[in-house]
């Protein structure tokens, strides 16, 4: 593999050494979390005893076919949905359980599948929104930080006064990620943010996201149905089963960082892809067959 020498170090090793790349994100522990919709009636088990350990600053990708409960898990983490059993810990402290429903908050910010920048606010107003509403910063501080972040993420400060509709979808997504990072969240939750994009934009967005990850060192939970994307971006790719959703396979991605597109043809990458593909395809087939049965 053609990589410059000295860069072939996995990020977590850097953390242990206490270098400049130390993680500032939180560690998340998801323990035997289940979610049952309509427990009195139809009893749809969306998640069944799902357990995931996420180290501080780790980039985790949850992969699986649609209907595997990955979005449910993200919604529970974000506080949009409740869990039926199990617990979630953040930095060793109980965050959510059955008796402790979770509220959404700036420590776990979501970037949405279809984008949720406020169209009636300019890019700058959107990015400043979190710290201002939490009264965590003064307007001047927030503006300074927002401009700085925008500028460092590919010169987005030049569109600071534009409205989101004036931006391409790729720029909108980047601004939304920056809006999330402004809050210095413990965990950044990305819900298939590049789903509707063409391959070229997607590749560009991957590099932008990796760069933002390198800069911020936040814990990231990234949801996708795209296996290649998951392996290319993440430290750990978690393959989920279809309903009831649970963890089928955990793949440690030992590809060095920074990740570059050429890695997609490396042997390690292809090996990982094969391993994961077995799991995903099996699940996709099961989901498909179940769909056919339900149709019949």
């Amino acid at each position: 593999m053609a990589l410059p020498a000295g860069e072939q170090v996995a990020p977590r090793e850097c953390d242990r050494n206490g270098t400049a790349m130390a993680a500032v994100g939180g560690g998340v522990s998801i323990r035997k979390v289940s979610k049952v919709y309509d427990p009195e009636g139809a009893r749809v088990v969306a998640l069944y005893e799902c357990s995931v350990e996420i180290a501080p600053g780790e980039f985790v990708a949850l992969v699986g076919p649609s209907g595997c409960g990955k979005s449910t898990l993200l919604n529970i983490l974000a506080g949009f949905d409740t869990l039926t059993s199990g617990e979630i810990y953040l930095n060793g402290k109980l965050l959510a359980s059955v008796n402790r429903p979770l509220q959404p908050g700036p420590d776990r910010v979501v970037v949405f599948q279809h984008g949720a920048l406020f169209p009636w606010k300019t890019v700058l107003e959107n990015v400043m929104y979190g710290p201002l509403r939490q009264k965590a910063m003064t307007a001047e501080e927030a503006e300074k930080k927002a401009i700085d972040l925008l500028q460092r993420c590919g010169g987005l400060d030049r569109v600071a006064t534009s409205y989101p509709t004036e931006l391409s979808s790729g720029m909108q997504r980047r601004v939304e990620i920056i809006r999330a990072l402004m809050n210095e969240p413990q965990v950044l939750l990305l819900d298939e943010p590049f789903r509707a994009m063409d391959t070229v934009s997607k590749t560009t967005m991957h590099q932008h996201l990796l760069e933002m990850y390198r800069m911020s060192r936040r814990t990231i939970v990234f949801i996708t149905h795209d296996l290649e994307e998951a392996i290319y971006l993440a430290d750990t790719a978690i393959v989920m089963t279809t309903r009831p959703g649970t963890v089928k396979k955990t793949l440690a991605v030992n590809l060095p960082r920074p990740r570059i597109p050429e890695m997609m043809s490396s042997r390690e990458y292809l090996d990982l892809k094969r391993q994961a593909a077995e799991g995903v395809h099996e699940e996709a087939r099961k989901a498909f067959e179940r769909g056919e049965r339900e149709q019949a």
Partner: peptide, 11 residues
Amino acid sequence: DYFRAAACLGA
């Protein structure tokens, strides 16, 4: 999603 985003951002 706008309501959810606002909640995430501490509104």
